[in-house]
Write a protein that binds this DNA or RNA. Structure first.
Length: 860
DNA sequence: GACATCTGGGTTTTT
DNA sequence: CCCAGATGTC
């Protein structure tokens, strides 16, 4: 099919700016209540309903408010009904928040907003309606990463490919990447398809897709990719959605990947009657002409040359209707998983006639924090440019604290938190944001010792936990007997004596007769191919499932779940498990059953589970939040601690190596995100020594520290007591004579990285200011004197803090005695070896000796 | 087939 | 350093 590339600017905007403006002003006097308190830019973003709109919303500028108010506006103006508004977010959390806030604004629950959700949930929804067009049934299963890998492993085995040399995980990553870029098996550039398993990559991708259809399953990428294909192959279907969605709103537009972009583009085109108009040329998705080189490969962040696609795209840009994308190019931090900052940078090209509105007034942070964040991000080149301003006071300066090692860093932060607490700060308003999740452990250890309540945000997703997936697998097999992956997962969990050999036999049978594993099991039981023990065991299992399936017709699904977990022996398996987290797993299972109550039936529950399950119901107790920078996006706290600002860790060496300059910029945006989470206090830390992969390494302060405005930064001494501190109040800087630590680097951090990066990208360009203005340059103690500090100078924290803790907990005398057997949520079982007030020293069976406040353990 | 031990590999971020 | 997967042993 030829591309009708001459549809050019069909005079896009229907709106008359002048009239609209007047109308807006007229309304202002007596305007609806929900518009009250919006600043002019926000208001414009809300009221510009016609044509494409890009709202560049810096951190803390009221982005969510604009989005929700806009929806409220559309509804109250009667411009569309709730189910005619497509509103997409990235995370379930964001979707939920929008729903909540919309409900508050409209004063009633937001029924009917069926199209408010994540890209994936909406894509999944659409796909279920047209499943047969993708050779699926409407009750298809959404596979998680684990299932994917398992499936790929089987394919690799079938192809006789060494799973070691070519890990299934890697292939899963590749396929995911292709799907993120909107590429089906036939469209993967040959060069790329060849890099896996000596050229078999593309073929494997194709057979993977085939297998998915047979299993009636789709992976995350398919939820969008199949939509796109359906839209392109069935213009009538596409038109149906184009007509339905009168307004489209997109949150976090900077995080969209190519597939999401294409999906949006299709939906955002004005419905055309000439069905010969698939529009969309960006990279000829789904066109049967196979992938010519240059399809897409060019579009990686960091490659700046793609003027070819650019020109071509522009010619055929179809008219776009009322799409409003909200985002912040400075907060694009998901490039590594396929997000294209480019999407937002090129919005005006992609949607001609677009109105761009900048929200630059920040309502969150103090002056110093904002200036630090702005100054830092100004070092990036690829940005649309925004200048955040605030009318808030300057507030406290951003502090930078160096410490000897990561342990001391944790200690220092722990003490500062206690100090803040004494000043009356709420623990809920304190967060520690780390670059990598392994940094969290040290803080957890420290807080456990201090008895400081904390909670980890993000962590392993609820539905990714083994026990949840196991439980779900049982339910999946009940609901769809053909779900081989689910069956395989639980066939021997708990142990039933059905090992690899048995499963292999079932596979053979299933393949020979082209039946699902479960049916194969039923058949095999009737033969004598299995040893009596396995045979009996398998027969019982089949019988059990038959029974459950029958029961599912008459029993409530929550009750069924309980019965299944019970009768299968699954619950018992964990009850017998003595490991530390068994109790938590049982809790999770209960939580799972409880969460099922929200759904009508098992089917409904399973359909939504993979997409919607994330950890809800976090306890609302006062606690410090601990999370990665990535999961902090969208959150805000009065006090934010940012540890680990060291070269290699932050910016991450790996990102630098793999993505070069683009990676550095993304890391810098991550730093910017971190800083802008803070309302009143931002505290940065770096350690001189850090354990990486088990061995100690000397590190140098992050280049990002040098990119902060001196006037807004204060270098402080480590409250942990040791570390730097000494001479003249100066902290270390990248100009440290690092040689004395055995490092071969004599140049500043960024220079070193520059040298390393040379191959992948053009050299580093500096913007901004002179090195000498760095807050870290200038006089300071020389390196050799530093070794003296170590831990010895540490006078330990003020005793008053401990006193408080004692008073707060059960009393001065512990209820435990020496040698008592105890259980701890995190460390498991152990016995008491020392008692000091309410502080116990416990020798844990697995975790070794730890000091723990007694309220954290219970008698075993 | 189940369990113990070993080795090698990977350690960012996630719908 | 820690984990998962693979191998080896009973």
């Amino acid at each position: 099919m030829t591309e009708p590339s001459k549809v050019s600017p069909l005079s896009v905007p229907q709106h008359q700016p002048a009239a609209g403006g007047i109308a807006a002003r007229a309304r202002a006097a007596s305007g609806p209540r929900y518009l009250d308190g919006l600043n002019p830019e926000q208001r414009e973003a809300v009221e510009t309903l016609e044509g494409p709109v890009l709202v560049l919303a810096g951190a803390g500028t009221g982005k969510t408010r604009v989005l929700t108010t806009r929806i409220a506006h559309i509804l109250s103006q009667g411009r569309a009904r709730p189910n005619e508004i497509l509103s997409v977010t990235f995370t379930n959390k964001a979707a939920r928040e929008m729903k909540t806030r919309l409900g508050q604004m409209l004063g009633h629950a937001v029924e009917g907003m069926q199209w408010l959700g994540t890209f994936h949930s909406i894509g999944g929804r659409i796909l279920r309606f047209h499943a047969e067009m993708a050779q699926l049934k409407s009750n298809f299963t959404v596979l998680d990463v684990d299932d994917q890998v398992r499936l790929l492993k089987q394919l690799l085995q079938a192809e006789d490919i060494d799973d070691k040399r070519w890990p299934a995980r890697m292939l899963a990553g590749l396929i995911d990447g292709w799907k993120n870029r909107g590429l089906g098996p036939s469209q993967v550039p040959p060069g790329e398809a060849a890099i896996f398993a000596n050229g078999k990559g593309g073929k494997l991708y194709a057979s993977y897709q085939e297998r998915l259809k047979i299993l009636n399953a789709a992976d995350f990428g398919d939820l969008l990719l199949e939509n796109i294909r359906i839209f392109r192959e069935h213009p009538d279907v596409l038109r149906q959605y184009q007509q339905r969605f009168k307004f489209i709103l997109v949150d976090e537009y900077q995080d969209t990947n190519v597939a999401q972009y294409l999906w949006l583009r299709l939906l955002a085109q004005a419905p055309s009657n000439s069905s010969s108009l698939p529009g969309l040329t960006r990279q000829s998705i789904g066109s049967s002409q196979d992938g010519s080189p240059g399809l897409d490969a060019s579009r990686r962040p960091g490659d700046d040359e793609q003027s070819v696609t650019d020109g071509e795209k522009e010619k055929s840009t179809p008219p776009a209707k009322n799409i409003c994308c909200v985002g912040d190019d400075d907060q694009s931090i998901y490039g590594w998983r396929g997000a294209e900052v480019d999407n937002i940078l090129r919005f005006e090209h992609d949607f001609p006639g677009a109105k761009v509105i900048r929200l630059e007034r920040n309502y969150r942070s103090t002056g110093h924090i904002l200036s630090a964040a702005s100054y830092l991000i100004a070092h990036n080149e690829g940005r649309l440019g925004k200048t955040l301003r605030t009318e808030d006071v300057d507030g406290e300066k951003v502090t930078v604290t160096g410490s000897w090692d990561s342990e001391e860093e944790a200690r220092a932060i722990g003490e500062e938190i206690e100090e803040l607490q004494r000043k009356g700060e709420k623990l809920n308003e304190i967060a520690i944001l780390v670059r990598a999740s392994y940094q969290m452990r040290e803080f957890e250890d420290r807080f456990v010792t201090l008895g400081l309540p904390y909670r980890v945000i993000g962590g392993p997703r609820f539905y990714e936990r083994a026990e949840i997936r196991d439980a779900l697998a049982y339910l999946r097999v009940i609901s769809s007997p053909a779900d081989d992956l689910a069956f395989e997962r639980i066939v021997n969990v708990p142990k039933r004596g059905l090992g690899d050999a048995t499963v292999q036999l079932l596979h053979d049978h299933a393949r020979k007769r082209r039946i699902p594993l479960f049916e194969a099991a039923r058949a095999v039981v009737e033969t004598d191919e299995l040893k009596p023990k396995a045979r009996g065991s398998l027969r019982d299992l089949v019988a059990q499932f038959d029974r459950w399936r029958a029961q599912s017709e008459v029993t409530a699904h929550t009750e069924l779940a309980e019965v299944v977990l019970d009768e299968s022996g699954y619950t018992e398996m964990w009850q017998k498990d003595r490991s530390a987290d068994a109790a938590g797993r049982l809790d999770n299972l209960k939580e799972l059953v409880r969460s099922m109550e929200e759904f009508e039936n098992l089917q409904g529950f399973l359909e939504h589970i993979a997409l919607v399950m994330d950890r809800d119901g976090e306890a609302e107790d006062e606690a410090v939040s601990l999370m990665t920078l990535h999961s902090a996006k969208g959150l805000e706290f009065d006090n934010v601690f940012l540890p680990g600002w060291e070269e290699g860790l932050f910016p991450s060496q790996r990102t630098l190596d793999e993505q070069g300059r683009a990676g550095l910029e993304e890391e810098r945006r991550l730093a910017h995100v971190g800083l802008t989470r803070a309302r009143r206090r931002a505290k940065l830390y770096f350690a001189t020594n850090r354990r990486i992969h088990g061995t100690w390494a000397t590190t140098i302060p992050s280049r990002f520290l040098d990119e902060l405005p001196p006037a807004s930064v204060e270098i402080t001494e480590s409250k942990g007591g040791s570390g730097w501190g000494g001479a003249g109040g100066y902290g270390p800087s990248r100009f440290d004579n690092v040689e004395s630590f055995g490092s071969s680097y004599t140049t500043p951090g960024w220079q070193r990285a520059q040298a390393r990066r040379g191959r992948s990208n053009e050299g580093q360009k500096r913007g901004g200011f002179d090195e000498d203005q760095s807050p870290f340059s200038g006089s300071r103690s020389d390196a050799s004197s530093r070794g003296d500090f170590g831990f010895s100078r540490n006078k330990r924290g003020p005793l008053t803090i401990e006193g408080e803790l004692v008073a707060k907990s059960t009393g001065t005398v512990s209820e435990f005695s020496l040698d008592d057997r105890v259980f701890h949520q995190k460390f498991g079982y152990g016995h008491v070896v020392k008692i000091d007030g309410n502080k116990l020293t416990i020798a844990f069976d697995k975790a070794g000796e730890k000091k723990v406040v007694d309220s954290f353990v219970e008698r075993a």
